[in-house]
Design a protein around this nucleic acid. Sequence first.
DNA 1: CATATTGTTTTTAATAATTAAATTCAAAAC
DNA 2: GTTTTGAATTTAATTATTAAAAACAATATG
Lengths: 300, 300
Amino acid sequence: MARTDDRFRSAYNKLLDICDTMGVGDQLPPETALADRMEVSRTIVRSALQKLDTEELIQWQGRQKTLIRKPEKKHRLAQADNVLSTEELEKKFLEWILRFDVPEGTSLNVAQLSRQFGVPAHSLQEFLAGLSRFGLVERRQKGGWTLLGFTAEFAVELSEFRLVLEMNAVRQLLALPPDHEIWLKLKALKQEHEALREVLETRYHDFSMLDEKFHMTINSVVKNRFVVEAQKVITLIFHYHYMWDKADELQRNAAAIEEHLSWLNAMLAKDEKQSEAAALKHLRTSKETLLSSLRGHKLV
Amino acid sequence: MARTDDRFRSAYNKLLDICDTMGVGDQLPPETALADRMEVSRTIVRSALQKLDTEELIQWQGRQKTLIRKPEKKHRLAQADNVLSTEELEKKFLEWILRFDVPEGTSLNVAQLSRQFGVPAHSLQEFLAGLSRFGLVERRQKGGWTLLGFTAEFAVELSEFRLVLEMNAVRQLLALPPDHEIWLKLKALKQEHEALREVLETRYHDFSMLDEKFHMTINSVVKNRFVVEAQKVITLIFHYHYMWDKADELQRNAAAIEEHLSWLNAMLAKDEKQSEAAALKHLRTSKETLLSSLRGHKLV
DNA sequence: CATATTGTTTTTAATAATTAAATTCAAAAC
DNA sequence: GTTTTGAATTTAATTATTAAAAACAATATG
């Protein structure tokens, strides 16, 4: 079979659900209405109706689509277990690179990776093409792809890019009016940080989530598709690095909380100079952390 | 035929070139050496050698690969006219969008576009996957792609992103030591601008090139793969817009030259405040130009 | 005997072919 | 005249096929 009839199967099952809400003898809606409702083409609707007719669940003649009897469980078609979404693939891929320290220059094997991640080779191809726009992979002359790698250089550049974007976010944030929702969010963040600080000894694992929330809140004031896309990748990579670097986690997180709090206080006080200084300090610490985790990792 | 033997053909011709540099009776280098030299696999080298043997250009027996006679023009294999590179495809694609004002939400037809641009559907697929990372296109549920479009919103966001990146470049540039090559480049740029100003009435078309050179020089101080990638797209889009927007070109370019010159002078004087102010002023003018050209275009 | 080189097999990737699904166009029913 | 259906055409996801790469084994050479 050339392409899967997955779409047909899910549509057919949806159609059974629709029949289920109707009474015996009722008329099914027109094909176009069904197509709209189920978000598929009329072609699928028609083949599904055909099958309903064959199964003698409806009687179909021209515009008459009469429900003869209610569908039962046995009528449902088996669905292929849904494949990974792009986001899930992205996560799996980065996790793999970071967990196994896949070195720079490794040639990426689409056939093997698609088996490994359980996605069609086609999807992987597309995914890698996307990553190449971020300079993480590169097309090889002889076909296939090369991992340009998560080197120290990459980390530095990523951190610096993050710094540029986030400093810009801070400047934009401080220009927002006092009744903007951001100020309430910042206050709430401050409280969350203080709360976590109290119980950090036992719950220091929770910081990773809070860290992400913190940075995402600040960045949320920038409404720009390029910035948003770039930040997605930045967040992912920082996130996964924190996951693998468990050394001195308590101490690191304690320091980070203090840095976040100074930053938050400066912004709440609308002190531009101090906000920028606090931001700079924290972002530089993050960069160092990322770099050292990379070094530690490479030595294992 | 499943895949083209283009690689074989070009390798075979290269091998003819190599034979041409040798004398009759000489020995060809080992397969591995040839593969390295021609940047193909040994498989291709061997099939090429096979053909040379069949054509009675060499006598091949184990390690003996003796040149019997010099290859002639008739021996060369016809090459498929080379397809577009990614950069060329990118240019063609943007040109198409801007020239025909392809509206937001247009569904992009890979089959048709691949015919239109003369590239394999495969390449186009990959290209679109890359663009989706910049939020220019999006995958549709029912398959295929949607153009998210070159709307005013897009232009604003692109301009603002450009502003963020270029202001950062200015700050980094000003921190460079006096013996850095950038200062000489800036001086040269200043002269070029002054020269063009003198003859602008007749040569105002030349400004587009100079503009690109100017921005690229400033951005060149930022060594960051993310910034570089982002800037590629920015440059392309600004470039193509200038191409189509011919209204008031002389006047616009005259104004832009003055803005560039104030900016250059401020940087050469290493005046941080004034450099940033001049940069801001010019980048905002650019944004307005882009926006108004978009409006003018849409009204046609 | 160690290494360089070749011969052979296996695996991978690019493209054509195939089939599901979407879209378009024409005809029929209301 | 509009809505709905029927049929034909086009498109896109996936498989199959072939070119090329890579891996492995065998052999020749110094």
